[in-house]
Nucleic acid binder design. Structure first.
Lengths: 189, 189
DNA sequence: TAATGCATGTAATCGGTTACATGATTCA
DNA sequence: TGAATCATGTAACCGATTACATGCATTA
């Protein structure tokens, strides 16, 4: 997904500034499966504005420079919906960690252990974060009676399950790998 | 991981042609967590050759044009090992499918179903393929007594577990999502 | 006082994809 | 005859990252 479409997607959930769009990919609902940087968001927004897919109005703030609030136009809505009809390319879990671990034999065992532990912690962090905001949404929904968004909850659940499985796998196989590496190193002596 | 490093990585497992390197990312051991295209592999190989990190010798073939077999030099080995000491950036399951499903409410339920089923099939295909080659390696190892590569098996196991978990999640939540969507659509009428 | 968060933007650069170009062989 | 596999490469283009540039407010 290009950043252009990603911006339309965030804005389809409500108006936002460039800065807030960035946050949606850092801590917000898209955090676990998409990413975008300032360097791509701001130019995308400018282009979208020039094309009439979004409209912007400046909001004055005391002291701070104005912030620009962006909102989808009808044309932007339509373009976004059209983007949803495109077939997705197959998913792939592109992972630098797996790349390194593939060559575990060339790694000092201590480094392998560090890598493994850091990744486990990171995955568990993901699970905790996404679970937290999902639970919060459920609490709000229960309290107010507002229905949950099925797509959003489905995607959050997917993320939780996947990162949980990843963390569990690392946990379950960590010691065996490290032992293998030790044996491998000794055999090479 | 840039394609340059990826090429060094494949060549560290034995000499190969550009074409074979491509295959390593399509069906080979790297298939489920890295990717590279011809348009990036061939230029990377040229550059690597110019820098002395790989050496090449032409292999004549009857009828067909020569193929170039590439092999790591000592310098290439060293560069590759250095690349293994770099800290990996955090993993992210970048997924177009999840992006679309996040907006499931804007999708016709039939399309959501198609998307879900295609993804499940694709994940299961991954699992079958990686399990197959893993089992084959284990059989060979049992027959010949050659030890397995711990890193390779660990990574293969990770891929199997993850894609299995993904497929299972889709299976387990498919019908509920579709029902929600139906209810949502009716409520909107 | 230093770091962090809020807030927006530009420019250089880079890496990679897509499409194109070529050409033989084998299999359906 | 047409498609797929083997086999290598180039060029245009694009999209995105990184770093840079600015500046105020708040918090430690």
């Amino acid at each position: 997904m290009d950043v252009r479409t990603l911006c339309l997607a965030v804005l389809s959930k409500g108006e936002a500034t460039g800065y807030e769009i960035k946050k949606a990919f850092e801590e917000g609902p898209f955090a676990h499966f998409q990413r975008a940087s300032f360097g791509s968001i701001y130019p995308a927004l400018s282009r979208l504005l020039a094309e009439g897919l979004v409209e912007a109005h400046a909001m004055e703030q005391d002291g701070r420079p104005d912030k620009k609030m962006y909102r989808l136009t009808a044309q932007g809505q339509a373009t976004f919906h059209a983007a949803l009809t495109v077939d997705p390319e197959p998913d792939q879990f592109r992972s630098d960690l797996l790349f390194l671990l593939f060559f575990a034999c060339h790694l000092p065992p201590a480094r392998a252990a560090t890598l493994l532990d850091a990744a486990t912690a990171s995955y568990r962090g993901h699970v905790a974060r996404v679970s937290g905001i999902k639970a919060e949404r459920e609490a709000v929904s229960n309290a107010t009676g507002q229905p949950l968004d099925p797509g959003r909850e489905f995607v959050a659940g997917f993320g939780i399950t996947l990162y949980q499985a990843a963390a569990d796998y690392l946990d379950a196989n960590r010691d065996a790998l490290l032992a293998d590496l030790q044996g491998h190193a000794e055999a090479a002596e």
